[in-house]
Design a protein around this nucleic acid. Structure first.
Length: 112
DNA sequence: ACTTTGACTATAA
DNA sequence: GTTATAGCCAAAG
């Protein structure tokens, strides 16, 4: 049993805090972890998210533009977009509609 | 131990 | 408005 936690594990924890019907950004998560400039690390860590349990709602994580940058990692199909739509999030052309409204910042709302 | 990479972001042109 | 470049840092090879 390892006592050392990797950056990825920390990312998974924050992503799992994202409530349904909401989305977050890599930058916001990075800031919450104290690594404001490590937004890339968040996305990099998510590569392993699909094999981490409990499952990480990575489909709720997009870039700051509200674009589904990692949709390709969910599968060749628009699986990521379908999941977002299933939660009430409108996605048009791989971009989240009303992004500011569905945006959820762990540092602001924080499990609210 | 060094090099490469990557689901990003910010700034410049 | 878009496109290009640099900075950023952790994990894998």
């Amino acid at each position: 049993m390892k006592t050392e936690y990797t950056f990825a594990e920390n990312v998974y924890d924050v992503v799992r805090l994202i409530p349904p019907g909401r989305v977050s950004t890599y930058g916001a998560i990075a800031v919450y972890l104290g690594a404001t400039k490590s937004a890339r690390l968040v996305g990099y860590a998510m590569n392993n998210s699909h094999k981490v349990m409990p499952i990480v709602p990575a489909h709720r994580v997009v870039n700051r533009n509200g674009v589904l940058t990692g949709k390709h990692f969910f599968g060749v199909n628009n699986e990521m977009q379908r999941k977002l739509e299933a939660e009430g999030i409108e996605v048009i052309n791989d971009c989240i509609k009303n992004f500011k409204q569905v945006f959820w910042d762990p540092r602001i709302e924080c499990t609210l």
